[in-house]
Simulated assay, not measured.
Amino acid sequence: MFCPTLAAAQYPTAAADIACNLERHLEFVAQAADQQVQLLVFPELSLSGYELACAPELALTQDDPRLLPLSAAAHARQMTIIVGAPLRSGPALHIVALIFHPNGALTTYTKQHLHGAEQQYFSPGNGGSLLEFHHHNVALAICADTSQPDHASAAARAGAHIYAAGVLVSEAGYAKDSAALADYARRYGMLTLMANHAAPTGGWIPAGRSAIWNHTGELLVAAPDDAPGLIIADKTSDGWHGRLCRLS
Rank of each mutant, 00 (worst) to 15 (best):
T107S: 15
T108E: 14
Y109S: 05
H113R: 13
L114V: 07
L114D: 06
E118C: 07
Q120R: 15
F122I: 14
P124H: 02
G125F: 09
G127S: 12
G127Q: 10
S129K: 13
E132N: 15
H134D: 11
L140R: 09
L140W: 03
A141L: 07
A141D: 08
D145A: 13
T146P: 03
S147R: 09
P149T: 06
S153G: 07
A155V: 09
A156H: 13
R157E: 10
R157L: 15
H161C: 12
A165S: 10
G166F: 02
G166R: 02
V169M: 11
V169K: 02
E171W: 00
A172L: 13
A172I: 04
G173M: 09
Y174S: 06
Y174W: 10
D177H: 06
D177Y: 00
A179E: 12
A179Q: 15
L181I: 06
A182E: 02
A182K: 07
D183P: 05
R187V: 03
R187C: 14
T192C: 11
L193H: 04
L193R: 08
M194F: 00
H197Y: 03
G203D: 07
P206A: 03
R209L: 06
R209N: 10
A211I: 09
A211M: 05
I212R: 02
I212P: 08
N214G: 04
N214D: 15
N214E: 12
T216H: 05
T216D: 09
G217D: 01
L219F: 00
L219C: 14
A222G: 07
A223K: 01
A223P: 08
A227H: 03
G229F: 00
L230H: 01
I232N: 04
I232A: 06
T236I: 00
S237V: 06
D238T: 13
D238Y: 00
D238H: 02
G239M: 04
H241D: 07
H241F: 05
H241T: 15
H241A: 14
G242H: 07
C245P: 11
C245Y: 03
R246L: 12
